[in-house]
Amino acid sequence: MATVLYLDELSKKYGSLQAVDRLTMQVEAGSIYGLLGPNGSGKTTTLGMVLDVIRPSGGNFLWFGRSVSRETKRRVGALLETPNFYPYLTAKANLQVVADTKQADHRNINKMLDMVGLGTRSHTTFKGFSLGMKQRLALAAAMLNDPEVLVLDEPTNGLDPQGIAEVRDLITRIAAQGKTILLASHLLDEVEKVCTHVAVLQSGKLKANGPVGDILSTQDQLLISAEELAPVLQLLERLPYVVRFAQEKNYIGLTLSEGYSSTDLNRDMFVQGIVLSQLLVRRKSLEAQFLEITQK
């Protein structure tokens, strides 16, 4: 796999604030890479630096193994923070300006407007658009010269549920074309739903990174209780598919290895003559996982 973007100890300091602290990571071709972190964790600053609008105070980054230039920029479509357009120009005129800058084929404009569902609104001025439409226009602009890589900063921020669904659907469709996507988000379920890889940022530091499955486990947690907890605990020690368990007051919380479910546990308990008074499947909240990662 070719490396699309490589960050080497990239840092940014604003006065005494270390916004990004020696960030080292790489994005492989074809992946959907999520940059996950709370507001103010340095996501936008990081993207701003690799997009050449914020000057790093230290470190380095390479696009396609080269330093940033007009050529590398042409292979990357990006939107940073908000959709940036001239409010008094129509959707089409705005895309013409973008096409000039990117030296893209002007015939792509209508095609892209259709792709994001703005084909019939191409003559509406930008200021008349809803936030969702503005966001979709920004995606159309980013896609204008059919880049290999898309960089998206909080693409669903501020949208209503329908807008979020539309934009996510669009991202998934774009990803299906084999493009590499670097996506910053503070929404865990967004990263979990859309991304293949994730890097967790907090206060400008990289807390964890890797495939989404490794970082954000989706294992369920079970809560069980019985009249007598002692035999239950004894049995749990012997069941090979129980990853971990812990007694909490009058119930036991436990995690099963992949491929096993509450049914297996219930059956084995019953076979051993233990009748559970309660069996509860609880989805481990992403927020809890996130806190676990960032407090490590």
Partner: peptide, 18 residues
């Protein structure tokens, strides 16, 4: 200053203008 408040100057640099 419009280019700053609309952030279009920034976008143009992102898109490849020096």
């Amino acid at each position: 200053t419009d280019e700053y408040s609309y952030r279009t100057l920034r976008q143009q640099v992102i898109d490849g203008r020096s």
